[in-house]
Amino acid sequence: MKFVKPKDVENLLKNLEEDKGKKYFLAGGTDLNVQIKNGIIRDANIIYINHLTELSGISEENNIILIGATTSIMDILDSDLIKRHLPYFQRSLESFASPLLQNTATIGGNIANGSPTADVIPLLLVLNAKVELSSKSQCRLVYIKDFFTGYKQNVMKSNEIITHIIIDKNAEKDFLTFYEKVGSRRTLTISKVTLAGMKKVSGNRISQIRLAVGSLSEFPRRLFKVEDYITDKTLTEIDFSKVENLLGKEITPITDLRSDKEYRYHVCVNLIRTFLNQ
């Protein structure tokens, strides 16, 4: 196991350019250390990034909020800036693991690890967040909805690293929101089903809706087909069997040690219904 501690971001990016092999970034370490312990990661190169202050912190720039990749979940929960502009995002993150893990786990780590159960991602999906990927030569922005390509697979190149998460300041403005993470207990739990939702209602009509789910497919995703169907309908116009049908096409829940696919599916249906009725 090779261990690298770059002295700054420039040094880090240079390093990434040179080292083409498999590597892991160590920030909070909450996922990485468990994977090392369980032997999932062996003899890999570790690049420590938690000390790079450029990658940490929450700031605003014109109409966007920038969250550094190594910002801890607790820093987001404690941030006044987030509270002012993205209260739904902040409130929902309280169900993230436990306060002890919130203090070390980072937002970038949760994205990079890319677990289907990742707590942060469904929220970022409905908020239309962007991920800033940096390499020595360029910096590009990828919508979180386009970031994942498969189970724990993403569009990051071997010379890139997540540097910021970018959310529009007005992302929540005028939206009615919903968030439910269902686990086997109330804290310290891994999601069996997560639904994040944002909608705008004018009169009786749902003029805009965004739905994102966790633990229901190989990576958390938006339910675009369901959204399209619901948009511009009133509650009475919505045929729920149609919603269920479309949902079935968008998610691929599995049965595992934690839960059953039928359960995951039915809970998702129930939660969507509850959100629509709210």
């Binding site: 086997s184 207990r185 109330r186 804290t187 310290l188 891994i190 040690l257």
Partner: peptide, 12 residues
């Protein structure tokens, strides 16, 4: 391990 063996926590 304790991640999946769901012993009740303070909130439960």
């Amino acid at each position: 391990g304790f991640t999946d063996y769901a012993i009740p926590t303070t909130f439960d």
